[in-house]
């Protein structure tokens, strides 16, 4: 199984059933999955902040929602993380490809790459790095905790995760 397939299996095991996404090269395979799976609700969105609005509506209607995006997208969500997710206690799972991590070919990605962890910490999003498929238990634990505590969880998947073996 590819890293994406392994990750997706964990997400479905945790009953994540509503996804929105903004593309990233590293997420191409995952997004194909979302487009093809008849058992979930999925739409692309124009901007990550808009995505959080949609996911908040889905959560209040009983879904377990996730936002698929690259780390630069986290910068587009800050006000909604505070004034929507934290204020109304709405748990959302951020599935974040980490551009600017070790192995990044595009220098311009470094700045936001370095900023994403402190940003998540600043707005009280539980930040969990998943460096390889061997660490995928963290995803299941983190999701379970998010819905228990009604607090958002942000997973960062660096290049090492996506480039990992079978």
């Amino acid at each position: 199984m590819t890293p994406t397939e392994q990750l997706y299996e964990r997400l479905r095991a945790q009953k994540i059933d509503f996804f929105v996404s903004v593309p990233c090269k590293l997420l191409a395979e995952l997004i194909e999955r979302l487009e093809e799976d008849p058992d979930i609700t999925y739409t692309p969105v124009t901007r990550e902040e808009e995505g959080l609005g949609i996911l908040a509506g889905a959560y209040m209607a009983g879904k377990r929602p996730a936002l698929v995006m690259q780390n630069s997208g986290f910068g587009n969500t800050i006000n909604a993380v505070c004034s929507l997710l934290s204020y109304f206690k709405i748990p959302v799972v951020f599935l974040t490809s980490h551009r600017g991590s070790e192995g990044e070919p595009v220098e311009a990605q470094r700045v936001m790459g370095d900023a994403v962890k402190p940003l998540m910490a600043a707005v009280a999003v539980d930040c969990i790095e998943v460096a390889s498929t061997a660490e995928l238990d963290r995803v299941e634990e983190g999701i379970a905790r998010a819905f228990e505590t009604q607090n958002p969880v942000g997973f960062l998947f660096p290049f090492s995760f996506w480039e990992g073996g079978e």
């Binding site: 609700t41 902040e49 609005g53 006000n79 004034s83």
Partner: peptide, 18 residues
């Protein structure tokens, strides 16, 4: 109460889910 612009998106998520 806080996320200017997101009422339409929240409504969309609700409409998609029930």
């Amino acid at each position: 109460l806080g996320s200017m612009g997101l009422a339409s998106s929240i409504g969309l998520g609700l409409a998609m889910s029930q």
